[in-house]
Nucleic acid binder design. Structure first.
Length: 268
DNA sequence: ATGCCGTATGATATACGA
């Protein structure tokens, strides 16, 4: 039995419905995890997803900014997410699938422009968010050994996760202080970077290209901000992974592309 | 180091993304 999970920062779910339908059609997705839905729950286009076969949905949206959603063909139980950093800014959803796997969907704060928490509240928020995640997962090490963490973590941790390691060392998303914070989170459950499990660290790999470069394919100045991590118990079940770079070239694209992971699980 | 753009909103400018 296989389960295909996709993560995608859609940058407005309502504008991206056609692209989402195409993604689902091409890749036969079972579980969709979106970030930056930018819509309140009451206005979420649930019917469009029912037509695509997604009968189960969990929503955590607000007006204009942020917002996450999980749409699934499989049944799940929604779990209560904490109020990260004392805010209700719609950056996390957490469900347990009928196959017994916990799925966490995160939208980590982008962090603004200046990589100094004393000068920039947004950067301070980003670091605090990561620290709270680290504490939270650290305290729940033994909760469910079969867990998946996906989302736009807004950090490209490795040298070949950005187009120029040297030129981005002081740019928010690739600064050492952020990378260290993400590394501490990574160690809480000995997470497995499912993307790098399939694509070696020697190979440049991105999931985001700025809207500001019209010739994004030629300059190829991307960053790998979107991630899929699994607990070690799921590592033997990782059967396929795709970073769907082509989607960046679709009509009216998001600046992020979807990442799809397939897990092949034993019967029963 | 910066600017190129795209999205949403009590909008015709502003906040935000990264």
């Amino acid at each position: 039995m296989t389960v295909r999970i996709a993560t995608w920062n859609v940058n407005s779910v309502r504008l991206r419905l056609d692209a989402i339908a195409e993604l689902v059609k091409q890749w036969n997705i079972d579980v969709l995890c979106f970030q930056e839905t930018k819509v309140i729950n009451d206005a979420f286009p649930i019917k469009a997803f029912r037509r695509l076969g997604f009968d189960h949905c969990a929503l955590n949206g607000q007006k204009s900014y942020n917002g996450v959603a999980i749409l699934s063909r499989r049944a799940f139980e929604r779990r209560a997410e904490p109020a990260w950093c004392g805010k209700r800014d719609c950056r996390h959803l957490w469900v347990t699938l009928d196959v017994g796997i916990d799925v966490h969907n995160f939208y980590v704060p982008a962090g603004g422009d200046v990589p100094d928490p004393d000068l920039n509240d947004k950067f301070a928020h980003k670091l605090q968010f990561l620290e709270e995640m680290t504490d939270w997962f650290g305290k729940r090490r033994r909760r469910n050994p079969k867990s998946v963490l996906v989302g736009d973590l807004n950090i490209a941790p490795h040298e070949n996760d950005v187009w120029s390691h040297k030129q981005l060392l002081k740019v928010v998303s690739h600064t050492p202080v952020e990378v260290e914070a993400l590394t501490r989170l990574y160690r809480t459950r000995d997470w497995v970077d499912a993307v790098r499990h399939f694509v070696p660290h020697s190979e440049k790999l991105y999931s985001w290209w700025s809207y500001r470069s019209p010739r994004w394919q030629d300059s190829d100045r991307g960053r790998r901000l979107d991630h899929i991590w699994t607990t070690p118990a799921l590592k033997p079940h990782l059967s396929r992974l795709e970073v769907l770079r082509d989607v960046r070239g679709w009509e009216r694209p998001s600046d992020h592309v979807p990442i799809v992971v397939e897990l092949t699980l034993p019967k029963g």
